[in-house]
């Protein structure tokens, strides 16, 4: 008996030791970044990165936002932040709504060639997008919108649609088709059924999809770099510029503050909508 409990206790201690180590392993870099961002430049230069700031200051944050140099301009990240917002909001709204519309059409209406379309979508979701960047650049240049907000939004919508459509289709096949039939007998058509019956049932799914898209698009770097054009560069691209623009000393405190600023929006989003996220993911079929 005693031996058994002892063994169990040792096992438990081992488990906790392992958990604490992993926790530290993952959180130390984050802690270092956070602590560095609150240090004055002198401390960054003269002390170890593991030391906590002796003098807390938010100066680096202010500089990262307002006046740090990115390339030749020295205005911080605030312009890029608003660029990102201008890109993310329409991209998310359009891709989520169109994805949900596609999913509804594919799951509840007889669409000619629906199976082929599904196959194409699944393939589309897996194609490495580097492959089609060059053709896309060509196409957008020909149309004449290359390097504009519209262009980068179009790119995000295009690349988001396969996954959004699959996500919503799989959610909507769980909604009994009799619901749609009942509405058709009641006289409602394709759009009215979508707006008044399907969309209200999808609130949780819409939130999940919006979170996925917002995070994905906010964190995008490559598309922003290529398609957005100089006046609309998103925050991620500017962050890279900021970190690589050096005038003598490397201001790690400003770089880390800028990195945290860029990472903050998706983080806050998860923080405030985690509840819906779980609810949406676990939401099963709808029973009448």
């Amino acid at each position: 008996m005693a031996a058994a409990t002892n063994q169990a206790r040792i096992g438990r201690i081992g488990l906790y030791a392992f958990l604490v180590t992993t926790c530290l392993f993952f959180s130390i870099p984050l802690l270092v970044v956070i602590s560095t961002s609150f240090k004055p430049l002198s401390e960054v230069r003269d002390f170890s990165v593991f030391q906590l700031p002796a003098q807390m200051t938010a100066a680096a944050w202010g500089k990262a936002w307002q006046s740090a140099c990115t390339g030749t301009e020295c205005a911080g990240l605030h312009i890029a932040f608003w660029n990102s917002v201008r890109i993310v909001i329409p991209s998310v709204i359009i891709s989520v709504l169109v994805g949900s519309l596609n999913g509804y059409a594919l799951s509840h209406w007889r669409v000619r060639g629906a199976d082929t379309l599904m196959l194409a979508l699944i393939l589309g979701a897996f194609i490495p997008y580097q492959v089609i960047i060059f053709p896309l650049v060509k196409i957008f240049s020909t149309v004449g919108i290359f390097g504009s907000v519209a262009c980068i939004i179009a790119v995000h919508v295009l690349f988001g649609l396969p996954v959004m459509t699959l996500l919503f289709r799989n959610f909507y096949v769980g909604i009994p088709n009799e619901l749609v039939k009942a509405a058709r007998v009641d006289g409602a058509g394709f759009w009215r059924i979508f707006l008044f019956i399907i969309l209200p049932l999808s609130v949780n799914m819409l939130i999940v999809a919006a979170i996925l898209q917002t995070t994905g698009i906010w964190n995008d770097y490559l598309f922003g770099l290529i398609f957005a054009g100089h006046n609309n560069t998103p925050m991620t691209v500017e962050l890279m510029e900021l970190a690589t623009t050096s005038t003598g000393v490397v201001e790690y405190n400003v770089s880390t503050a800028a990195a945290l600023l860029t990472a903050l929006p998706p983080l806050l989003l998860y923080f405030f909508s985690g509840r819906y996220f779980v609810r949406g993911i676990t939401a099963g079929a709808v029973k009448g």
């Binding site: 009994p176 619901l179 509405a183 019956i197 029973k287």
Partner: peptide, 14 residues
Amino acid sequence: GIAMVFQSYALYPT
């Protein structure tokens, strides 16, 4: 000019 009652009721859940 018909009205229909479905096996699974098919009431609009929301």
